[in-house]
Nucleic acid binder design. Sequence first.
DNA 1: CTGATGCGCAACCAAACGTTGCAGGAGGGT
DNA 2: ACCCTCCTGCAACGTTTGGTTGCGCATCAG
Lengths: 116, 116
Amino acid sequence: MSTATAEKVDDELWSAIGDPTRRRMLDLLLVEGGGTATTLSQQLPVTRQAVAKHLGVLDRVGLVRATPAGREKRYRVDDAQLARAVAQLASVGSAWDARLRRIKRIAEAIQRAQQD
Amino acid sequence: MSTATAEKVDDELWSAIGDPTRRRMLDLLLVEGGGTATTLSQQLPVTRQAVAKHLGVLDRVGLVRATPAGREKRYRVDDAQLARAVAQLASVGSAWDARLRRIKRIAEAIQRAQQD
DNA sequence: CTGATGCGCAACCAAACGTTGCAGGAGGGT
DNA sequence: ACCCTCCTGCAACGTTTGGTTGCGCATCAG
């Protein structure tokens, strides 16, 4: 299993989507179906170079892929990889959720026991 | 609404759970129902001081709460706040998922149109 | 050819994660 | 009481990372 205390699986993926700027970039790329460092930077509060670095990170973990077109470099989201990332989020979320429920159950059991 | 491109809601929460060490700490605190900087550091690949700083961060965003007990300072997870964090994760995840599905639908529509 | 546009590289800053080292407070022996 | 141990807190330091500016180079449009 892997739902236990271990999530060393894809720390890289996590740190990639852990950055707020990168999350917004993925959002923009999804909404507009692609973009370049320049077009993205125009809709973000950071410079083109910062965006370029982030695109490099996202590319390295496979969340986006680049296609040079003339003098510009167009990026688009890799659907499969993003789906994997979403699964990771859901996995961690549900793991925590399960533990919270379990704790709540135990707490209620103690409550009952103390009423004897 | 807020499901759109905007998730400026709680960037703090995100960056808190964005760190892999802090995620593992939350895991440990959930499993063992609490702990101190020392006990946690023994089960993590970092020093006690690093853990202490992380606990400070988690405390500041309300994900954990401290209770001084004699010479030690015991921390436990704040259930409600962690539940909120889980909701955030699910929110972003489902937003991306929805866009992925939408893109897939459009792609299929184009496929059909081109077959005319 | 010239000018505008888009990219890449390098130097530099600030914040964050992690380390070591040291001083201080709270319990437990004898 | 005393000493010893354990846990905490603070400070200095190094390294990685997100961000900036400035420059040089390639590519399209007039």
